[in-house]
Amino acid sequence: MQAIGRLLSRLIDSVTVIAGLAIAFMMLHITLDVVARNAFNYPLPGTITIVSYYYMAIAAFMPLAFAEQKSAHISVEVLTERLPPLVQKHLAGWMLLLSAAVFGLMAVRSWQEAMGKYGIKASVVQGEDSLAVWPTYFFLPVGCLLMFVVVLYKFVVYLTGQTSGLDSERKRADSTPAETL
Protein backbone atom coordinates (compact mmCIF):
# COMPACT_ATOMS: atom_id res chain seq x y z
CA MET A 1 0.00 0.00 0.00
CA GLN A 2 2.58 2.53 1.12
CA ALA A 3 4.64 1.63 -1.92
CA ILE A 4 1.74 2.57 -4.19
CA GLY A 5 1.40 5.88 -2.35
CA ARG A 6 5.07 6.62 -2.77
CA LEU A 7 4.89 5.72 -6.44
CA LEU A 8 1.90 8.04 -6.88
CA SER A 9 3.79 10.82 -5.13
CA ARG A 10 6.70 10.29 -7.49
CA LEU A 11 4.31 10.50 -10.44
CA ILE A 12 2.74 13.67 -9.07
CA ASP A 13 6.17 15.16 -8.57
CA SER A 14 7.09 14.76 -12.22
CA VAL A 15 3.80 16.24 -13.40
CA THR A 16 4.32 19.09 -10.94
CA VAL A 17 7.70 19.83 -12.47
CA ILE A 18 5.99 20.33 -15.84
CA ALA A 19 3.37 22.58 -14.25
CA GLY A 20 6.04 24.57 -12.43
CA LEU A 21 7.91 25.06 -15.69
CA ALA A 22 4.70 26.36 -17.26
CA ILE A 23 4.41 29.01 -14.52
CA ALA A 24 8.04 30.04 -14.90
CA PHE A 25 7.80 30.15 -18.68
CA MET A 26 4.58 32.13 -18.48
CA MET A 27 6.42 34.79 -16.49
CA LEU A 28 9.42 34.83 -18.84
CA HIS A 29 7.40 34.69 -22.04
CA ILE A 30 5.13 37.62 -21.14
CA THR A 31 8.11 39.64 -19.91
CA LEU A 32 10.07 38.99 -23.09
CA ASP A 33 7.06 39.93 -25.18
CA VAL A 34 6.66 43.25 -23.35
CA VAL A 35 10.38 43.99 -23.63
CA ALA A 36 10.51 43.08 -27.33
CA ARG A 37 7.43 45.18 -28.02
CA ASN A 38 8.76 48.27 -26.26
CA ALA A 39 12.44 48.04 -27.09
CA PHE A 40 12.32 46.73 -30.66
CA ASN A 41 8.68 47.39 -31.56
CA TYR A 42 8.44 43.69 -32.30
CA PRO A 43 6.04 41.72 -30.09
CA LEU A 44 6.77 38.01 -30.04
CA PRO A 45 4.21 36.42 -32.33
CA GLY A 46 1.78 34.10 -30.58
CA THR A 47 2.38 35.18 -26.99
CA ILE A 48 -1.28 35.55 -26.07
CA THR A 49 -2.20 32.23 -27.66
CA ILE A 50 0.64 30.30 -26.07
CA VAL A 51 0.03 31.82 -22.65
CA SER A 52 -3.74 31.42 -22.62
CA TYR A 53 -3.93 27.99 -24.21
CA TYR A 54 -0.70 26.18 -23.41
CA TYR A 55 0.53 27.56 -20.08
CA MET A 56 -2.93 28.11 -18.63
CA ALA A 57 -4.24 24.65 -19.56
CA ILE A 58 -1.18 23.15 -17.86
CA ALA A 59 -1.33 25.41 -14.80
CA ALA A 60 -5.04 24.77 -14.28
CA PHE A 61 -5.21 21.00 -14.63
CA MET A 62 -1.80 19.40 -14.20
CA PRO A 63 -1.42 20.36 -10.50
CA LEU A 64 -4.90 19.08 -9.51
CA ALA A 65 -3.49 15.90 -7.98
CA PHE A 66 -0.62 17.78 -6.37
CA ALA A 67 -3.15 20.02 -4.63
CA GLU A 68 -5.19 16.99 -3.56
CA GLN A 69 -2.08 15.34 -2.14
CA LYS A 70 -1.30 18.46 -0.11
CA SER A 71 -4.99 18.93 0.84
CA ALA A 72 -4.96 22.35 -0.80
CA HIS A 73 -8.40 22.16 -2.39
CA ILE A 74 -10.70 24.63 -0.73
CA SER A 75 -13.57 23.37 1.41
CA VAL A 76 -15.61 24.66 4.34
CA GLU A 77 -15.02 22.91 7.69
CA VAL A 78 -17.27 25.01 9.86
CA LEU A 79 -20.13 22.50 10.16
CA THR A 80 -18.25 19.23 10.15
CA GLU A 81 -15.69 20.29 12.75
CA ARG A 82 -18.47 20.24 15.33
CA LEU A 83 -19.07 16.54 14.68
CA PRO A 84 -17.30 13.77 16.63
CA PRO A 85 -13.90 12.94 15.06
CA LEU A 86 -15.01 9.46 14.05
CA VAL A 87 -18.04 10.79 12.14
CA GLN A 88 -15.82 13.38 10.51
CA LYS A 89 -13.41 10.70 9.38
CA HIS A 90 -16.09 8.51 7.80
CA LEU A 91 -17.81 11.45 6.19
CA ALA A 92 -14.57 12.68 4.65
CA GLY A 93 -13.81 9.13 3.48
CA TRP A 94 -17.08 8.55 1.68
CA MET A 95 -17.19 12.03 0.23
CA LEU A 96 -13.97 11.16 -1.62
CA LEU A 97 -16.17 9.06 -3.91
CA LEU A 98 -17.88 12.22 -5.11
CA SER A 99 -14.56 13.76 -6.09
CA ALA A 100 -13.59 10.49 -7.77
CA ALA A 101 -16.80 10.48 -9.79
CA VAL A 102 -16.38 14.09 -10.87
CA PHE A 103 -12.77 13.76 -11.96
CA GLY A 104 -13.31 10.34 -13.51
CA LEU A 105 -16.09 11.75 -15.69
CA MET A 106 -14.03 14.81 -16.52
CA ALA A 107 -11.09 12.64 -17.53
CA VAL A 108 -13.22 10.58 -19.93
CA ARG A 109 -15.05 13.58 -21.34
CA SER A 110 -11.95 15.70 -21.87
CA TRP A 111 -10.21 12.75 -23.52
CA GLN A 112 -13.05 12.54 -26.05
CA GLU A 113 -12.85 16.27 -26.63
CA ALA A 114 -9.09 16.12 -27.04
CA MET A 115 -9.34 13.32 -29.62
CA GLY A 116 -11.95 15.33 -31.52
CA LYS A 117 -9.69 18.40 -31.58
CA TYR A 118 -6.75 16.23 -32.58
CA GLY A 119 -8.83 14.83 -35.44
CA ILE A 120 -9.39 18.24 -37.01
CA LYS A 121 -6.03 19.63 -35.84
CA ALA A 122 -7.80 22.48 -34.07
CA SER A 123 -6.07 25.85 -34.18
CA VAL A 124 -6.72 29.53 -33.47
CA VAL A 125 -5.83 32.56 -35.56
CA GLN A 126 -2.75 34.33 -34.33
CA GLY A 127 -1.54 37.31 -36.33
CA GLU A 128 -1.07 36.25 -39.93
CA ASP A 129 -0.97 32.61 -39.07
CA SER A 130 -2.91 30.07 -37.12
CA LEU A 131 -1.44 28.28 -34.17
CA ALA A 132 -2.28 24.68 -33.31
CA VAL A 133 -4.09 24.38 -29.99
CA TRP A 134 -5.16 20.73 -30.19
CA PRO A 135 -2.23 19.51 -28.05
CA THR A 136 -3.43 21.68 -25.15
CA TYR A 137 -6.66 19.70 -24.92
CA PHE A 138 -4.66 16.66 -23.77
CA PHE A 139 -3.51 18.36 -20.55
CA LEU A 140 -7.05 18.01 -19.19
CA PRO A 141 -7.45 14.22 -19.33
CA VAL A 142 -3.92 13.76 -17.97
CA GLY A 143 -4.48 16.11 -15.01
CA CYS A 144 -7.99 14.81 -14.29
CA LEU A 145 -6.95 11.16 -14.55
CA LEU A 146 -4.10 11.59 -12.09
CA MET A 147 -6.46 13.43 -9.75
CA PHE A 148 -8.99 10.59 -10.11
CA VAL A 149 -6.35 8.01 -9.24
CA VAL A 150 -5.15 9.93 -6.18
CA VAL A 151 -8.67 10.44 -4.83
CA LEU A 152 -9.51 6.79 -5.43
CA TYR A 153 -6.29 5.75 -3.70
CA LYS A 154 -7.15 7.93 -0.72
CA PHE A 155 -10.54 6.20 -0.57
CA VAL A 156 -8.95 2.76 -0.59
CA VAL A 157 -6.57 3.89 2.16
CA TYR A 158 -9.58 5.07 4.16
CA LEU A 159 -11.42 1.74 3.66
CA THR A 160 -8.46 -0.45 4.56
CA GLY A 161 -7.14 1.86 7.25
CA GLN A 162 -3.58 1.49 6.03
CA THR A 163 -0.84 4.11 5.93
CA SER A 164 -1.09 6.23 2.83
CA GLY A 165 2.51 6.82 1.82
CA LEU A 166 1.41 9.95 -0.04
CA ASP A 167 3.66 12.89 0.64
CA SER A 168 1.12 15.23 2.22
CA GLU A 169 3.62 17.40 4.10
CA ARG A 170 3.47 21.10 3.36
CA LYS A 171 6.82 22.81 3.30
CA ARG A 172 5.74 25.36 5.86
CA ALA A 173 3.73 24.69 8.98
CA ASP A 174 1.45 27.61 8.30
CA SER A 175 0.85 26.93 4.62
CA THR A 176 -2.86 26.43 5.01
CA PRO A 177 -5.00 25.63 2.01
CA ALA A 178 -6.12 29.22 1.93
CA GLU A 179 -2.69 30.80 1.87
CA THR A 180 -3.84 32.68 -1.07
CA LEU A 181 -6.78 34.90 -1.14
Binding site: V51, S52, S110, T180
Partner: peptide, 26 residues
Protein backbone atom coordinates in the same frame (compact mmCIF):
# COMPACT_ATOMS: atom_id res chain seq x y z
CA UNK B 1 -24.68 17.71 -19.32
CA UNK B 2 -21.99 15.62 -21.00
CA UNK B 3 -21.42 18.36 -23.56
CA UNK B 4 -21.12 21.07 -20.92
CA UNK B 5 -18.57 19.01 -19.02
CA UNK B 6 -16.48 18.89 -22.19
CA UNK B 7 -16.75 22.53 -23.21
CA UNK B 8 -16.73 24.64 -20.04
CA UNK B 9 -13.62 23.47 -18.10
CA UNK B 10 -11.30 24.06 -21.05
CA UNK B 11 -12.83 27.32 -22.18
CA UNK B 12 -12.93 28.76 -18.68
CA UNK B 13 -9.29 28.06 -17.94
CA UNK B 14 -7.69 28.98 -21.25
CA UNK B 15 -8.28 32.68 -20.89
CA UNK B 16 -5.66 35.37 -21.41
CA UNK B 17 -6.93 37.81 -18.79
CA UNK B 18 -7.15 34.98 -16.26
CA UNK B 19 -3.42 34.34 -16.72
CA UNK B 20 -2.83 37.37 -14.50
CA UNK B 21 -4.06 35.32 -11.53
CA UNK B 22 -1.10 32.91 -11.33
CA UNK B 23 1.27 35.75 -12.20
CA UNK B 24 0.09 38.05 -9.41
CA UNK B 25 0.14 35.10 -7.02
CA UNK B 26 3.72 34.38 -8.04
Amino acid sequence: AWGALGVIPYQFSTNWVLSSVPMFLL
